[in-house]
Design a protein around this nucleic acid. Structure first.
Lengths: 220, 220
DNA sequence: GCGCTCCCAAAACGATTGTTTAAAACACTT
DNA sequence: AAGTGTTTTAAACAATCGTTTTGGGAGCGC
Protein backbone atom coordinates (compact mmCIF):
# COMPACT_ATOMS: atom_id res chain seq x y z
CA UNK A 1 0.00 0.00 0.00
CA UNK A 2 1.57 3.21 -1.19
CA UNK A 3 1.86 6.05 1.30
CA UNK A 4 -0.24 9.10 0.48
CA UNK A 5 1.12 12.44 -0.58
CA UNK A 6 3.20 14.39 1.91
CA UNK A 7 0.68 17.22 2.01
CA UNK A 8 -2.13 14.75 2.51
CA UNK A 9 -0.26 12.97 5.27
CA UNK A 10 0.28 16.30 7.00
CA UNK A 11 -3.37 17.30 6.65
CA UNK A 12 -4.62 13.91 7.85
CA UNK A 13 -2.44 14.03 10.92
CA UNK A 14 -2.94 17.71 11.64
CA UNK A 15 -6.71 17.62 11.63
CA UNK A 16 -6.77 14.82 14.15
CA UNK A 17 -4.29 16.46 16.48
CA UNK A 18 -5.95 19.87 16.15
CA UNK A 19 -9.29 18.34 16.98
CA UNK A 20 -7.86 16.54 19.98
CA UNK A 21 -5.82 19.32 21.53
CA UNK A 22 -6.58 22.64 19.84
CA UNK A 23 -4.35 24.71 17.62
CA UNK A 24 -1.92 26.34 20.00
CA UNK A 25 -1.47 23.12 21.95
CA UNK A 26 -0.46 21.18 18.85
CA UNK A 27 3.13 21.74 17.76
CA UNK A 28 4.42 21.31 14.26
CA UNK A 29 6.93 18.83 15.58
CA UNK A 30 4.16 16.68 16.94
CA UNK A 31 2.35 16.77 13.63
CA UNK A 32 5.38 16.10 11.47
CA UNK A 33 6.77 13.31 13.59
CA UNK A 34 3.44 11.52 13.73
CA UNK A 35 2.96 12.03 10.01
CA UNK A 36 6.51 10.76 9.42
CA UNK A 37 7.54 13.78 7.43
CA UNK A 38 10.27 16.29 8.00
CA UNK A 39 9.63 19.24 10.26
CA UNK A 40 10.26 21.74 7.51
CA UNK A 41 7.66 20.12 5.27
CA UNK A 42 4.83 22.14 6.80
CA UNK A 43 6.46 25.47 6.11
CA UNK A 44 7.55 24.29 2.70
CA UNK A 45 4.16 23.08 1.54
CA UNK A 46 1.81 25.40 3.39
CA UNK A 47 3.97 28.40 4.25
CA UNK A 48 3.07 28.70 7.91
CA UNK A 49 1.13 27.11 10.70
CA UNK A 50 -1.74 29.55 10.19
CA UNK A 51 -1.97 28.52 6.56
CA UNK A 52 -1.97 24.87 7.57
CA UNK A 53 -4.91 25.49 9.90
CA UNK A 54 -6.84 27.20 7.13
CA UNK A 55 -5.99 24.38 4.73
CA UNK A 56 -7.38 21.84 7.17
CA UNK A 57 -10.63 23.78 7.28
CA UNK A 58 -10.80 24.27 3.54
CA UNK A 59 -10.53 20.57 2.96
CA UNK A 60 -13.74 20.12 4.94
CA UNK A 61 -15.62 23.27 4.03
CA UNK A 62 -15.02 23.38 0.30
CA UNK A 63 -16.85 20.11 -0.34
CA UNK A 64 -19.47 21.10 2.21
CA UNK A 65 -20.40 24.38 0.55
CA UNK A 66 -20.46 22.66 -2.82
CA UNK A 67 -22.80 19.95 -1.66
CA UNK A 68 -24.94 22.33 0.33
CA UNK A 69 -25.47 24.68 -2.58
CA UNK A 70 -26.34 21.68 -4.74
CA UNK A 71 -28.77 20.37 -2.14
CA UNK A 72 -30.47 23.76 -1.89
CA UNK A 73 -30.64 23.96 -5.67
CA UNK A 74 -32.37 20.60 -5.78
CA UNK A 75 -34.76 21.64 -3.02
CA UNK A 76 -35.71 24.89 -4.70
CA UNK A 77 -36.25 23.05 -7.96
CA UNK A 78 -38.45 20.46 -6.32
CA UNK A 79 -40.52 23.01 -4.41
CA UNK A 80 -40.53 25.54 -7.26
CA UNK A 81 -41.84 28.64 -5.60
CA UNK A 82 -43.58 26.99 -2.71
CA UNK A 83 -42.19 27.37 0.80
CA UNK A 84 -39.78 24.65 1.86
CA UNK A 85 -40.80 23.36 5.29
CA UNK A 86 -38.41 23.94 8.17
CA UNK A 87 -38.02 20.24 8.85
CA UNK A 88 -36.94 19.63 5.28
CA UNK A 89 -34.39 22.43 5.43
CA UNK A 90 -32.92 21.15 8.66
CA UNK A 91 -32.91 17.60 7.40
CA UNK A 92 -31.03 18.64 4.30
CA UNK A 93 -28.48 20.57 6.25
CA UNK A 94 -27.90 17.64 8.58
CA UNK A 95 -27.56 15.26 5.67
CA UNK A 96 -25.06 17.50 3.96
CA UNK A 97 -23.00 17.93 7.10
CA UNK A 98 -23.00 14.19 7.64
CA UNK A 99 -22.05 13.48 4.05
CA UNK A 100 -18.87 15.51 3.98
CA UNK A 101 -16.62 13.67 6.39
CA UNK A 102 -18.15 10.30 5.65
CA UNK A 103 -15.28 9.63 3.30
CA UNK A 104 -12.79 9.60 6.10
CA UNK A 105 -15.19 8.63 8.88
CA UNK A 106 -14.32 11.74 10.76
CA UNK A 107 -17.48 13.62 11.59
CA UNK A 108 -16.24 13.98 15.13
CA UNK A 109 -13.12 15.71 13.89
CA UNK A 110 -15.13 17.99 11.63
CA UNK A 111 -17.43 19.09 14.45
CA UNK A 112 -14.62 19.54 16.87
CA UNK A 113 -12.85 21.77 14.38
CA UNK A 114 -15.98 23.84 13.95
CA UNK A 115 -16.23 24.20 17.69
CA UNK A 116 -12.62 25.30 17.91
CA UNK A 117 -13.18 27.84 15.17
CA UNK A 118 -15.70 29.49 17.44
CA UNK A 119 -14.17 28.99 20.84
CA UNK A 120 -10.50 29.53 20.13
CA UNK A 121 -10.08 33.18 19.39
CA UNK A 122 -7.82 32.75 16.29
CA UNK A 123 -9.03 35.91 14.60
CA UNK A 124 -7.59 34.92 11.25
CA UNK A 125 -9.60 31.70 11.22
CA UNK A 126 -12.99 33.29 11.87
CA UNK A 127 -12.30 35.89 9.23
CA UNK A 128 -11.26 33.22 6.76
CA UNK A 129 -14.37 31.15 7.39
CA UNK A 130 -16.70 34.12 7.31
CA UNK A 131 -15.35 35.46 4.04
CA UNK A 132 -15.07 32.09 2.36
CA UNK A 133 -18.22 30.31 3.40
CA UNK A 134 -20.61 32.99 4.62
CA UNK A 135 -22.56 33.00 1.40
CA UNK A 136 -24.14 29.58 1.67
CA UNK A 137 -25.27 30.36 5.18
CA UNK A 138 -27.06 33.55 4.26
CA UNK A 139 -28.77 31.62 1.52
CA UNK A 140 -29.86 29.02 4.03
CA UNK A 141 -31.13 31.53 6.57
CA UNK A 142 -33.17 33.25 3.88
CA UNK A 143 -34.94 29.96 3.18
CA UNK A 144 -35.48 29.49 6.90
CA UNK A 145 -37.02 32.94 7.00
CA UNK A 146 -39.61 31.93 4.43
CA UNK A 147 -40.29 28.70 6.32
CA UNK A 148 -41.01 30.54 9.57
CA UNK A 149 -42.98 33.62 8.52
CA UNK A 150 -44.56 34.13 11.94
CA UNK A 151 -41.20 34.55 13.64
CA UNK A 152 -39.93 38.10 13.99
CA UNK A 153 -36.61 38.53 12.26
CA UNK A 154 -34.67 39.16 15.46
CA UNK A 155 -36.24 36.17 17.15
CA UNK A 156 -35.35 33.89 14.28
CA UNK A 157 -31.83 35.21 14.23
CA UNK A 158 -31.32 34.36 17.86
CA UNK A 159 -32.99 31.00 17.69
CA UNK A 160 -30.83 29.94 14.77
CA UNK A 161 -27.78 30.80 16.82
CA UNK A 162 -29.21 29.03 19.83
CA UNK A 163 -29.46 25.90 17.74
CA UNK A 164 -26.06 26.42 16.20
CA UNK A 165 -24.74 26.50 19.74
CA UNK A 166 -26.58 23.34 20.61
CA UNK A 167 -25.17 21.39 17.71
CA UNK A 168 -21.61 22.68 17.79
CA UNK A 169 -21.31 22.50 21.54
CA UNK A 170 -22.66 18.99 21.72
CA UNK A 171 -20.81 17.50 18.79
CA UNK A 172 -17.56 19.28 19.47
CA UNK A 173 -17.46 18.35 23.13
CA UNK A 174 -18.54 14.90 22.16
CA UNK A 175 -15.74 12.92 23.68
CA UNK A 176 -16.14 14.43 27.10
CA UNK A 177 -19.90 14.03 27.01
CA UNK A 178 -19.61 10.50 25.71
CA UNK A 179 -17.48 9.58 28.68
CA UNK A 180 -20.08 10.91 31.10
CA UNK A 181 -23.00 9.44 29.24
CA UNK A 182 -21.54 5.97 28.84
CA UNK A 183 -20.45 6.02 32.43
CA UNK A 184 -23.90 6.99 33.70
CA UNK A 185 -26.08 5.06 31.32
CA UNK A 186 -23.82 2.26 30.08
CA UNK A 187 -24.99 3.07 26.61
CA UNK A 188 -23.00 3.27 23.44
CA UNK A 189 -23.32 6.69 21.85
CA UNK A 190 -22.82 7.25 18.16
CA UNK A 191 -22.86 10.51 16.28
CA UNK A 192 -25.81 9.39 14.22
CA UNK A 193 -27.65 8.61 17.42
CA UNK A 194 -27.05 12.17 18.57
CA UNK A 195 -28.23 13.68 15.32
CA UNK A 196 -31.41 11.65 15.62
CA UNK A 197 -31.95 13.03 19.10
CA UNK A 198 -31.19 16.56 17.97
CA UNK A 199 -33.83 16.79 15.28
CA UNK A 200 -37.03 17.01 17.35
CA UNK A 201 -35.29 19.28 19.84
CA UNK A 202 -34.21 21.76 17.20
CA UNK A 203 -37.60 21.76 15.50
CA UNK A 204 -39.40 22.31 18.80
CA UNK A 205 -36.99 25.08 19.73
CA UNK A 206 -37.53 26.92 16.48
CA UNK A 207 -41.30 26.60 16.84
CA UNK A 208 -41.39 27.58 20.50
CA UNK A 209 -43.93 30.24 21.50
CA UNK A 210 -42.72 33.81 21.50
CA UNK A 211 -41.32 35.02 24.80
CA UNK A 212 -43.55 36.92 27.17
CA UNK A 213 -42.95 40.53 27.83
CA UNK A 214 -40.06 41.39 30.08
CA UNK A 215 -40.84 40.76 33.71
CA UNK A 216 -38.73 41.37 36.79
CA UNK A 217 -37.25 38.07 37.88
CA UNK A 218 -40.22 36.64 39.60
CA UNK A 219 -40.32 33.67 41.87
CA UNK A 220 -43.38 31.47 41.44
CA UNK B 1 -7.43 54.67 45.61
CA UNK B 2 -5.73 51.66 47.07
CA UNK B 3 -4.74 48.94 44.63
CA UNK B 4 -6.27 45.55 45.31
CA UNK B 5 -4.33 42.58 46.56
CA UNK B 6 -1.66 41.11 44.29
CA UNK B 7 -3.50 37.79 44.07
CA UNK B 8 -6.72 39.60 43.27
CA UNK B 9 -5.05 41.71 40.61
CA UNK B 10 -3.68 38.56 39.03
CA UNK B 11 -7.03 36.81 39.10
CA UNK B 12 -8.88 39.83 37.72
CA UNK B 13 -6.48 40.15 34.83
CA UNK B 14 -6.11 36.44 34.17
CA UNK B 15 -9.82 35.74 33.89
CA UNK B 16 -10.25 38.45 31.28
CA UNK B 17 -7.29 37.35 29.20
CA UNK B 18 -8.19 33.68 29.49
CA UNK B 19 -11.71 34.46 28.36
CA UNK B 20 -10.44 36.49 25.43
CA UNK B 21 -7.72 34.19 24.14
CA UNK B 22 -7.87 30.81 25.82
CA UNK B 23 -5.44 29.28 28.27
CA UNK B 24 -2.52 28.17 26.14
CA UNK B 25 -2.61 31.39 24.16
CA UNK B 26 -2.34 33.52 27.28
CA UNK B 27 1.17 33.76 28.68
CA UNK B 28 2.04 34.48 32.26
CA UNK B 29 4.09 37.41 31.07
CA UNK B 30 1.05 38.93 29.45
CA UNK B 31 -0.99 38.48 32.60
CA UNK B 32 1.63 39.80 34.98
CA UNK B 33 2.59 42.78 32.89
CA UNK B 34 -1.02 43.85 32.42
CA UNK B 35 -1.72 43.28 36.12
CA UNK B 36 1.42 45.27 36.96
CA UNK B 37 2.89 42.54 39.13
CA UNK B 38 6.15 40.65 38.87
CA UNK B 39 6.34 37.62 36.60
CA UNK B 40 7.24 35.33 39.47
CA UNK B 41 4.17 36.37 41.43
CA UNK B 42 1.97 33.80 39.71
CA UNK B 43 4.20 30.89 40.61
CA UNK B 44 4.73 32.29 44.07
CA UNK B 45 1.07 32.77 44.94
CA UNK B 46 -0.56 30.00 42.95
CA UNK B 47 2.26 27.52 42.36
CA UNK B 48 1.78 27.02 38.65
CA UNK B 49 -0.22 28.15 35.66
CA UNK B 50 -2.52 25.16 36.00
CA UNK B 51 -3.28 26.13 39.57
CA UNK B 52 -3.98 29.69 38.47
CA UNK B 53 -6.49 28.45 35.94
CA UNK B 54 -8.25 26.39 38.57
CA UNK B 55 -8.22 29.35 40.97
CA UNK B 56 -9.91 31.51 38.35
CA UNK B 57 -12.66 28.93 38.06
CA UNK B 58 -13.02 28.44 41.78
CA UNK B 59 -13.61 32.13 42.31
CA UNK B 60 -16.66 31.88 40.10
CA UNK B 61 -17.88 28.41 40.90
CA UNK B 62 -17.57 28.43 44.67
CA UNK B 63 -20.12 31.24 45.13
CA UNK B 64 -22.25 29.70 42.41
CA UNK B 65 -22.55 26.30 44.05
CA UNK B 66 -23.26 27.92 47.38
CA UNK B 67 -26.07 30.05 46.00
CA UNK B 68 -27.44 27.25 43.88
CA UNK B 69 -27.63 24.82 46.78
CA UNK B 70 -29.36 27.49 48.81
CA UNK B 71 -31.82 28.20 46.03
CA UNK B 72 -32.63 24.51 45.67
CA UNK B 73 -33.04 24.21 49.43
CA UNK B 74 -35.56 27.05 49.35
CA UNK B 75 -37.39 25.48 46.44
CA UNK B 76 -37.61 22.07 48.03
CA UNK B 77 -38.86 23.64 51.24
CA UNK B 78 -41.52 25.62 49.43
CA UNK B 79 -42.69 22.67 47.35
CA UNK B 80 -42.31 20.17 50.18
CA UNK B 81 -42.67 16.84 48.40
CA UNK B 82 -44.53 18.07 45.36
CA UNK B 83 -42.82 18.08 42.01
CA UNK B 84 -41.11 21.35 41.14
CA UNK B 85 -42.13 22.40 37.62
CA UNK B 86 -39.44 22.49 34.99
CA UNK B 87 -39.95 26.19 34.31
CA UNK B 88 -39.36 27.00 37.94
CA UNK B 89 -36.18 24.95 38.05
CA UNK B 90 -34.80 26.59 34.94
CA UNK B 91 -35.79 30.03 36.16
CA UNK B 92 -33.97 29.44 39.42
CA UNK B 93 -30.84 28.23 37.69
CA UNK B 94 -30.85 31.25 35.41
CA UNK B 95 -31.28 33.59 38.33
CA UNK B 96 -28.41 31.96 40.21
CA UNK B 97 -26.10 32.08 37.24
CA UNK B 98 -26.93 35.71 36.65
CA UNK B 99 -26.37 36.56 40.30
CA UNK B 100 -22.81 35.28 40.57
CA UNK B 101 -20.86 37.57 38.27
CA UNK B 102 -23.14 40.53 38.86
CA UNK B 103 -20.64 41.80 41.39
CA UNK B 104 -18.04 42.35 38.73
CA UNK B 105 -20.40 42.72 35.78
CA UNK B 106 -18.65 39.88 34.05
CA UNK B 107 -21.26 37.39 32.98
CA UNK B 108 -19.67 37.29 29.58
CA UNK B 109 -16.33 36.28 31.09
CA UNK B 110 -17.98 33.66 33.24
CA UNK B 111 -19.75 32.09 30.29
CA UNK B 112 -16.71 32.22 28.11
CA UNK B 113 -14.69 30.43 30.75
CA UNK B 114 -17.33 27.75 31.01
CA UNK B 115 -17.19 27.32 27.27
CA UNK B 116 -13.43 27.02 27.36
CA UNK B 117 -13.62 24.44 30.11
CA UNK B 118 -15.57 22.29 27.72
CA UNK B 119 -13.89 23.02 24.43
CA UNK B 120 -10.23 23.24 25.42
CA UNK B 121 -9.06 19.77 26.23
CA UNK B 122 -7.22 20.71 29.47
CA UNK B 123 -7.78 17.38 31.17
CA UNK B 124 -6.88 18.69 34.60
CA UNK B 125 -9.54 21.41 34.38
CA UNK B 126 -12.40 19.11 33.53
CA UNK B 127 -11.39 16.74 36.25
CA UNK B 128 -11.16 19.58 38.74
CA UNK B 129 -14.58 20.94 37.83
CA UNK B 130 -16.18 17.54 37.79
CA UNK B 131 -14.82 16.54 41.18
CA UNK B 132 -15.42 19.90 42.80
CA UNK B 133 -18.78 20.97 41.48
CA UNK B 134 -20.39 17.83 40.13
CA UNK B 135 -22.53 17.43 43.21
CA UNK B 136 -24.81 20.40 42.73
CA UNK B 137 -25.42 19.43 39.14
CA UNK B 138 -26.47 15.89 39.93
CA UNK B 139 -28.82 17.35 42.52
CA UNK B 140 -30.27 19.66 39.89
CA UNK B 141 -30.64 16.96 37.27
CA UNK B 142 -32.40 14.75 39.79
CA UNK B 143 -34.97 17.49 40.31
CA UNK B 144 -35.29 17.86 36.55
CA UNK B 145 -35.84 14.13 36.34
CA UNK B 146 -38.84 14.38 38.63
CA UNK B 147 -40.16 17.33 36.65
CA UNK B 148 -39.98 15.41 33.38
CA UNK B 149 -41.08 11.88 34.29
CA UNK B 150 -42.00 10.95 30.72
CA UNK B 151 -38.49 11.53 29.42
CA UNK B 152 -36.13 8.53 29.25
CA UNK B 153 -33.03 9.10 31.33
CA UNK B 154 -30.64 9.14 28.41
CA UNK B 155 -32.86 11.51 26.48
CA UNK B 156 -33.03 13.93 29.37
CA UNK B 157 -29.28 13.78 29.84
CA UNK B 158 -28.68 14.76 26.26
CA UNK B 159 -31.31 17.45 26.15
CA UNK B 160 -29.88 19.08 29.22
CA UNK B 161 -26.50 19.21 27.52
CA UNK B 162 -28.09 20.49 24.36
CA UNK B 163 -29.48 23.38 26.34
CA UNK B 164 -26.21 23.87 28.17
CA UNK B 165 -24.64 24.24 24.75
CA UNK B 166 -27.25 26.74 23.70
CA UNK B 167 -26.70 28.94 26.70
CA UNK B 168 -22.93 28.73 26.89
CA UNK B 169 -22.43 29.13 23.17
CA UNK B 170 -24.73 32.10 22.96
CA UNK B 171 -23.60 33.96 26.02
CA UNK B 172 -19.90 33.22 25.53
CA UNK B 173 -19.91 34.35 21.94
CA UNK B 174 -22.09 37.26 22.92
CA UNK B 175 -19.90 40.06 21.71
CA UNK B 176 -19.58 38.73 18.19
CA UNK B 177 -23.28 37.89 18.01
CA UNK B 178 -24.28 41.24 19.41
CA UNK B 179 -22.37 42.99 16.69
CA UNK B 180 -24.15 41.00 13.99
CA UNK B 181 -27.56 41.37 15.59
CA UNK B 182 -27.36 45.10 16.17
CA UNK B 183 -25.97 45.59 12.71
CA UNK B 184 -28.75 43.61 11.06
CA UNK B 185 -31.66 44.62 13.22
CA UNK B 186 -30.59 47.93 14.74
CA UNK B 187 -31.73 46.63 18.07
CA UNK B 188 -30.07 46.96 21.43
CA UNK B 189 -29.36 43.55 22.95
CA UNK B 190 -29.06 43.06 26.67
CA UNK B 191 -28.25 39.90 28.56
CA UNK B 192 -31.59 40.00 30.27
CA UNK B 193 -33.22 40.27 26.88
CA UNK B 194 -31.40 37.15 25.76
CA UNK B 195 -32.38 35.23 28.85
CA UNK B 196 -35.99 36.19 28.20
CA UNK B 197 -35.69 34.85 24.66
CA UNK B 198 -33.97 31.70 25.87
CA UNK B 199 -36.67 30.60 28.29
CA UNK B 200 -39.43 29.51 25.89
CA UNK B 201 -36.85 27.93 23.61
CA UNK B 202 -35.33 25.85 26.37
CA UNK B 203 -38.71 24.77 27.71
CA UNK B 204 -39.91 23.79 24.26
CA UNK B 205 -36.70 21.88 23.61
CA UNK B 206 -36.97 19.91 26.82
CA UNK B 207 -40.61 19.10 26.09
CA UNK B 208 -40.02 18.18 22.46
CA UNK B 209 -41.50 14.88 21.23
CA UNK B 210 -39.26 11.84 21.46
CA UNK B 211 -37.16 11.10 18.38
CA UNK B 212 -38.29 8.51 15.87
CA UNK B 213 -36.50 5.24 15.66
CA UNK B 214 -33.09 5.21 14.09
CA UNK B 215 -33.27 5.55 10.36
CA UNK B 216 -31.36 2.89 8.43
CA UNK B 217 -28.38 5.01 7.48
CA UNK B 218 -25.00 3.42 7.57
CA UNK B 219 -22.84 3.38 10.64
CA UNK B 220 -19.44 4.71 11.45
C1' DG C 1 19.42 44.37 68.45
C1' DC C 2 18.09 39.34 66.28
C1' DG C 3 15.29 35.98 64.13
C1' DC C 4 11.39 34.89 61.56
C1' DT C 5 7.88 35.12 58.07
C1' DC C 6 5.87 37.01 54.21
C1' DC C 7 6.05 39.39 49.84
C1' DC C 8 8.36 41.39 45.87
C1' DA C 9 11.81 42.07 42.24
C1' DA C 10 15.38 40.98 38.66
C1' DA C 11 17.73 37.62 36.39
C1' DA C 12 18.58 33.38 34.65
C1' DC C 13 17.22 28.58 33.63
C1' DG C 14 16.09 24.81 30.44
C1' DA C 15 12.76 23.53 27.38
C1' DT C 16 9.90 24.21 23.43
C1' DT C 17 7.99 27.00 19.92
C1' DG C 18 7.58 28.41 14.57
C1' DT C 19 10.58 29.40 11.06
C1' DT C 20 14.68 29.56 8.02
C1' DT C 21 18.87 27.90 5.82
C1' DA C 22 21.66 25.23 2.86
C1' DA C 23 22.82 21.03 1.13
C1' DA C 24 21.42 16.41 -0.40
C1' DA C 25 18.14 13.44 -2.83
C1' DC C 26 14.81 12.86 -6.11
C1' DA C 27 12.05 13.07 -10.54
C1' DC C 28 11.88 14.13 -15.11
C1' DT C 29 13.03 16.18 -19.65
C1' DT C 30 16.24 16.74 -23.23
C1' DA D 1 23.85 10.95 -19.12
C1' DA D 2 23.63 15.62 -18.07
C1' DG D 3 20.86 19.22 -16.46
C1' DT D 4 16.77 21.27 -14.19
C1' DG D 5 13.30 22.10 -11.09
C1' DT D 6 11.06 20.09 -7.09
C1' DT D 7 11.07 17.86 -2.75
C1' DT D 8 13.27 16.20 1.43
C1' DT D 9 16.64 16.46 4.99
C1' DA D 10 19.41 17.89 9.10
C1' DA D 11 20.77 21.72 11.52
C1' DA D 12 20.45 26.01 13.32
C1' DC D 13 17.90 30.22 14.30
C1' DA D 14 15.63 33.65 17.27
C1' DA D 15 11.84 34.10 20.13
C1' DT D 16 8.87 32.78 23.77
C1' DC D 17 7.30 29.80 27.15
C1' DG D 18 6.72 28.27 32.45
C1' DT D 19 9.52 27.90 36.20
C1' DT D 20 13.33 28.57 39.58
C1' DT D 21 16.80 30.98 41.93
C1' DT D 22 18.65 34.56 44.48
C1' DG D 23 18.56 38.41 47.23
C1' DG D 24 16.49 42.26 49.28
C1' DG D 25 13.24 44.66 52.15
C1' DA D 26 8.85 45.33 55.20
C1' DG D 27 6.56 44.09 59.24
C1' DC D 28 6.33 41.74 63.80
C1' DG D 29 7.42 39.30 68.27
C1' DC D 30 10.88 38.73 71.59
Amino acid sequence: MAQPDTMTRILDTAEVLFAERGFAETSLRHITSKAQVNLAAVNYHFGSKKALIQAVFSRYLDPFTGRFHAALDALEARYENRVIPLEVLLENMATTVLAVPAERNSLKVFMRLLGLAYSQAQGHLRRHIQEQYGGVFTRFTELVRRATPDLPDAERFWRLHFMLGTVIFTLSGLDALKDIAEQDYAEQVTVRDLVRRLRPVVVAAMNAPLPDDMSPTQED
